[in-house]
Amino acid sequence: MDVPATDALARALYPRQNRLMTKSPDILCIGSVLWDVIGRSASVMARGSDVPGRIIRLPGGVALNIAMTLVRFGLRPGLLSSVGRDAEGDELTKACAHLGLDTTYLYRSEDLPTDRYMAVEGANGLIAAIADAHSLEAAGAKILRPLIDGPLGSAAAPYPGPVALDGNLTESLLDDIARSPAFCAADLRIAPASPGKAERLLPFLRSGRGTLYVNLEEAGLLCQTRFDTAPEAAAALLARGAARALVTDGGEITCDGHRDGILSRRPPEVLVTRVTGAGDTFMAAHIAAELCGADRDTALSKALTAAAAYVSGDTPS
């Protein structure tokens, strides 16, 4: 299947609205904002492989990847995260602003370095990755000050808009968010960041809050079992208390599980050239579609099309 390039895809899927620019962002993206260092090779790789390829450095992190995709769909995201006041942090903040992201609410730490993520990808997919998000974890609730007692909201006047939240925060902080009055009016959209951090989303199962975006493995970790299909996983997450869960499974069927029923769609077939960031693209495209008024079925279809364009290499990193 031929997939249109980024700008054409964004225009086709999410026509830009004639909106007045306001001081408040259209959506808040909370979580990791860091540098991605990614090595890619066209060769099939195994443990110990030493092959030619390319190594690139890009602005990344789950929250930032989601925000960058939302910008391409005509939205104006604000970032809540921790970025150091080191040279890498200054460079990253400038890059984010250049990309059209609102960096006003970033917590700039004097003593914590800017976080990093490193991944190696081969023709057979992601080989290994390490996320160094220790500064974000150490900053803790400081990154939420603008929402808890600041210009964006408070417990007395909760922020009423959409929030994309990633699991790079500590489980205790995510638990606080799930129960905090400051978030009670927000439309929470939550991703685990990686399978290793999937169980950090348990507070949102217990509280029945938010929309979860997980893959098949992450769904299994949350439910302490293994699933063969996305419909099976979505049903189990709902049974365990999830208000809503979108479950992806690579090129297999993807599901949107909700109390009104489980929708299933198969992604478009494309040649996979990269995988890091695909889940973030899917989540951002889905959020953008629903913010533009799409129904559940249409939003799922648009998100899968956008993710297919990304993994095929037809959208920029």
Rank of each mutant, 00 (worst) to 15 (best):
E91N: 13
E91Y: 10
L92V: 03
L92K: 07
T93A: 11
K94G: 14
A95G: 10
A95D: 10
C96T: 01
A97H: 09
A97I: 05
H98T: 15
L101N: 02
L106G: 06
Y107K: 11
R108L: 07
R108C: 08
R108K: 06
S109N: 12
E110Q: 12
D111H: 11
P113W: 10
T114I: 09
R116K: 12
R116Y: 00
Y117V: 02
Y117E: 04
Y117I: 05
M118W: 12
M118R: 11
M118V: 12
A119Y: 06
E121L: 05
G122M: 08
G122V: 02
G122T: 06
A123V: 09
N124Y: 00
G125N: 06
L126K: 05
L126G: 05
I127P: 08
A128S: 13
A129I: 10
A129P: 07
I130V: 15
I130P: 08
A131V: 00
A133Y: 10
H134M: 10
L136S: 08
L136K: 02
L136V: 05
E137C: 04
A138F: 02
A138Q: 15
A139P: 01
A139W: 03
G140C: 09
A141Y: 12
K142L: 12
I143T: 08
L144C: 07
L144M: 09
L147V: 02
P151V: 13
P151S: 13
G153D: 06
S154V: 09
A157I: 13
A157K: 15
Y159I: 09
Y159D: 07
P162N: 11
P162Y: 08
V163E: 06
A164Y: 01
L165D: 10
N168P: 04
T170W: 03
E171K: 14
S172R: 15
L173K: 06
L173H: 05
L173C: 06
D176T: 15
D176Q: 15
R179N: 12
S180W: 04
P181V: 07
P181H: 06
F183K: 07
C184I: 13
D187C: 13
D187P: 05
D187R: 15
L188H: 03
I190M: 09
I190A: 07
P192Y: 12
A193C: 14
A193Y: 00
P195Q: 11
P195Y: 14
A198L: 07
E199C: 14
F204E: 09
L205R: 05
L205T: 00
R206G: 11
G208R: 04
R209K: 13
G210K: 05
